[in-house]
Simulated scan of single mutants.
Amino acid sequence: MHSSKLLFIAIGLFTVSVFAESSTELDEVNNRIQIENTLNNYIQGTSYSNPKQIDRAFAPQANLYLTKKDAPHWIVPATTYRSWFENKELGKFTGRIGEIISIDIADDVAMAKVEIMIPKGQARFVDYMLLKKLDDQWQIIGKTASKAASNQHGKRILFIVSSHSFHGDSKMRAGTSFSELVNAYKEFKKAGYTVDFMSPDGGAVSLAYIDTSLPSHKKYIYDHQFMHALAHTKTPQQVNAKDYRAVHYVGGSNAMYGVHDNPQIAAISMEIYEQHNGIVSSVCHGTAGIADLKLSNGKYLIDGKRISGYPTKFENTKADYFQHFPFDMTKHLRLRGANFEIGERGKPFAITDGRVITGQNYQSSSLVAKQIIEKLQQLDANN
């Protein structure tokens, strides 16, 4: 066989392989979107008394396997379940706050985990859903749930992370600081907040500085809910600013790229700050993300404010990675009018200036989160 024919066949096989792979990935994305729509019909239908949305979520023959006093095996048909919402006022909030925790898909079946918070009752339900694709439509065919006491109140914090895996256009690896993620996350969860993750591109993000000899790292690297959220970060298009009380820009060397110059992220942050009386916060290299934020009057957010972040004097300015930074952190913040302050190296250092809260390094992550929580409590008390 001629070499040209062999080449043609090889190219053809490669094309088919790439197309099949792309088609499979597209199918997975479409299936996930459809499943999320089904689960959101369940969440919204039960949160705002809309039986028609509940009908769209459940297959007609679906059953719910629930528990009540003296009935540990209480089987409720989906049709009966939806009837519980028929006599309620359509569209009126029922006190249920729902959140999709995870989705696991295998061909035409899927398992999903949904969190339902009822702040007034200080309760948290975890729903386990079995879904199947029926007549090209994903529907819930079974559900069971557990219940526990909870301090969760439904108020939300938006963590902003970079989508970059390398320094600039180089092949030098960069990622989001795992310590900065887990140290702040655990403080917010302990205080009853819900945490969402957003990145410029959405989806899985690169992580750095993971050390599973540290108890907090070991705990969260094996926490399915936490890691699933980092594998499926939201895009800016999926985020509604009015849902959040604060934004928190997380550091790691990749935080220097793709965040500070993203107009959609900036718009979300400034809406939370200006229209919803929220907080803008950052830690370490995450402070690069707030450097260019502008108020509606055209003034830089950090102009005249006491700000902290990872200073240039702690960088190895002769190293290759530093040459890819879009700007010198210290100079840039001061150019924007910030009163840039530095604490002792390797020690926690955080500053609250109004509704802008910043920290110097990963050691400051917990402190920044605590200051955010304290400020939010003050704001809520004054409303």
Rank of each mutant, 00 (worst) to 15 (best):
V161A: 13
H167E: 05
A191H: 15
H164N: 15
S163V: 10
M172F: 13
R173G: 05
G192N: 12
F178W: 04
G192P: 14
I157N: 08
V161K: 08
D169N: 14
G168R: 09
V161Y: 12
L181H: 04
H153A: 01
S165W: 10
L158R: 05
A191T: 14
R173N: 11
Y185P: 05
H167A: 02
S162Y: 06
F166D: 10
E187N: 10
K186L: 08
E180P: 01
F159N: 08
K171W: 10
K155R: 15
L158P: 07
H153F: 06
K190W: 05
G168I: 06
K155N: 15
K190F: 11
F188V: 02
S163W: 05
V182E: 00
H164I: 02
S170N: 07
R173T: 11
D169H: 09
K190Q: 15
S170M: 15
F178Y: 06
T176I: 14
E187W: 01
V182A: 00
F188C: 03
K190P: 07
I160M: 11
I160Y: 02
L181C: 06
G168F: 10
R173F: 13
Q152T: 12
S170C: 14
S162V: 06
K186F: 03
Y185C: 03
K186A: 03
A184Y: 01
S163L: 08
S165Y: 07
H153L: 01
T176R: 05
S163F: 02
V182P: 01
L181T: 04
F188P: 01
H164A: 14
A184W: 03
I160P: 02
I160D: 05
K171G: 05
N183T: 01
G192F: 14
A191D: 13
E187S: 09
V161H: 13
V161P: 11
G154M: 03
E187V: 15
K186V: 13
Q152N: 12
A184K: 02
S170L: 14
L181A: 04
L181M: 07
K189S: 07
I160S: 07
H164V: 06
L158W: 05
A174K: 07
F166I: 13
K189A: 06
H153R: 04
D169P: 06
E187I: 13
H164R: 12
A184G: 08
M172P: 04
G175E: 07
F166V: 15
K189F: 09
F166K: 12
S163N: 09
F188R: 03
K171M: 12
E180M: 00
E180V: 02
I157V: 11
S179V: 00
H164F: 14
S179K: 10
G175Q: 10
